[in-house]
């Protein structure tokens, strides 16, 4: 199983990748998780490769072989698109963070509809998650975006990890104190995906 995570530095991509890795170990797999980013602490593009299965050697996913692409930001979903396989699953958090350089250079920021149209060329399994709306509606802390998206990814039925292990990994990483809030966020993310279904333009 190959899962590619993309987003912007500071969004917590790495935490999400570690959660998936921890859950995969709990499910008995061999795991590789790799973070790819440039210098400095935040603001640049960040990609994490998560791979698990029986015999895993490479920490990187080969282009065109990712079973799932999870992006916490619209533009970054497109930058990572080349990794997705035909009929792979795409989950996009509908947040838009235009890079300052795009504004300086006058390059148009692609809309969520542009992104959906692009992905439609290779897959029907496109899901757009408005995590901000879920957070507001359920009065969840802003830091639960990762858990919401994780719930959505699980709800596709194609994540290849058990709900039990995901929850266990979450509790281990975030602590008992945040258990109920994270389970709530996970379930709301799952519910949102089941209710909205695949994205259309």
């Amino acid at each position: 199983m190959n899962i590619l995570l993309s987003g912007v530095g500071g969004q917590g991509i790495l935490t999400l990748a570690e959660l998936l890795g921890d859950a995969a170990i709990l499910d008995g797999y061999e795991v590789r998780v790799s973070e790819v980013h440039g210098m400095a602490q935040r603001g640049g593009q960040v990609v994490c490769h998560v791979r698990f299965g029986k015999n895993v050697y490479s920490p990187l996913i080969i282009e065109g072989a990712s079973d799932m692409l999870i992006s916490l930001e619209v533009l970054e979903s497109l930058r990572a698109a080349r990794y997705l396989k035909h009929e792979g699953v795409v989950i996009i958090n509908s947040l838009e963070l235009p890079p300052p350089l795009a504004i300086i250079k006058g390059i148009k920021y692609p809309s969520i509809n542009d992104a959906i149209k692009e992905f439609m060329k290779i897959t029907k399994k496109i899901y757009v998650i408005n995590s901000m709306e879920i957070i507001k509606r359920n009065r969840l802390p802003a830091a639960t975006i990762n858990t919401i998206i994780l719930g959505s990814a699980w709800a596709t039925g194609e994540l290849g990890l058990s709900r039990d292990s995901l929850i266990k990994a979450m509790i281990r990483r975030f602590g008992e104190k945040w258990k109920d809030i994270n389970i709530k966020a996970f379930e709301e993310g799952a519910k949102y995906l089941s209710e909205t279904g695949v994205a259309k333009v």
Binding site: V8, G9, H37, G38, M39, A40, Q41, R42, G43, G44, Q45, E63, G64, A65, L75, E76, L78, R79, A81, R82, Y83, L84, K85, H86, P98, P99, P100, L101, A102, K105, I107, K108, Y109, P110, D114, A115, E118, K121, I122
Partner: peptide, 20 residues
Amino acid sequence: VSKSGFKLEVEVPPRPPVLC
């Protein structure tokens, strides 16, 4: 045989790391 012949039509602006 290339598995992904996926060419984007929209321009994807670069996002280099920036000072915080």
